[in-house]
Amino acid sequence: MTASAVRLTDVHKSFGPVQAVRGVSLNIPAGGVHGLLGPNGAGKTTTIRMILDILRPDRGERKVLGTADIGAIRNRLGYLPEERGLYRGLTPIQTLTYFGRLKGMSAAAARKTAEQLFETYGITDLARRRVKTLSKGQAQKVQILGAIIHDPELVILDEPFSGLDPVNQQVIEKLITDLMDRGKTVIFSTHVMEHAERLCDSLSLIANGRQVFSGTVAEAKALLPRQIEIDSPGDLRPLESVNGMKLSAAPKGESTVWRFEADRALDMTALFRWFSERNASITAFHTLEPNLRDVFVHIVGMAELEDAA
């Protein structure tokens, strides 16, 4: 059985009358990349802050890297907060050295590691400029390096891609995959489903302070029916008679492409038998898996409906 990097059990947190987190339970295995998804105000950042012990839950249990005493393992955690912040008057090298020292490194070791990180991620030229002279993207890269300077076992990145151009997003993706390759556990929250789809081994979806999904990307996609596109000049409406097939879009204009929703339990043999028996003409046949965005919209929509009810 894989050890847990983070285990939350029925964790609650309120701010005054606002219930920010309502009974979230997470079990994130050690190693790999875990995505924490959810709409704005869903409770992702509050959940992350509780994992890091920046906030204490009102109730519920937390275990991080095998211990409930999170204060004792601070130096094994790395964190990029959603609200970025650096000392404007310091240089990146001074900043990273300070962060490294706070995480238990000696000043010399922190400085040396910082230099290496700047070199690895191609920003050596920024190392001795004042933070206030850096662009937002440059400052963000510096801050992410600050989160990993002490080589933590668990790295939590809150919206790491936010505000970055595609080139810089690639740099962050590389950083995450590097961490993953080195056996670290990475948790990141994001609104960009493409990143989650590309990078995550597992996902948790939080909506309105509740956890509404937890599992792998494939398991998330399996929550929605797959789409089947069939290019045929004939009339395929009768195809709905096959168990599990439902017409979602008939061709329009000169198009001959029919679109069906197909149950996960659909027997493909029965489908092809139907075509064969009717000698139907088909020029193309595609099965399409739902993307994570559709799954996200679907699950969040369902959660809102449930809460409204």
Partner: peptide, 15 residues
């Protein structure tokens, strides 16, 4: 400055 620059959160993961 630390509040305005959002540095607290980073610091509080260390101390």
């Amino acid at each position: 400055e630390e509040k305005a620059n959002r540095i607290y959160e980073t610091l509080l993961t260390a101390v």
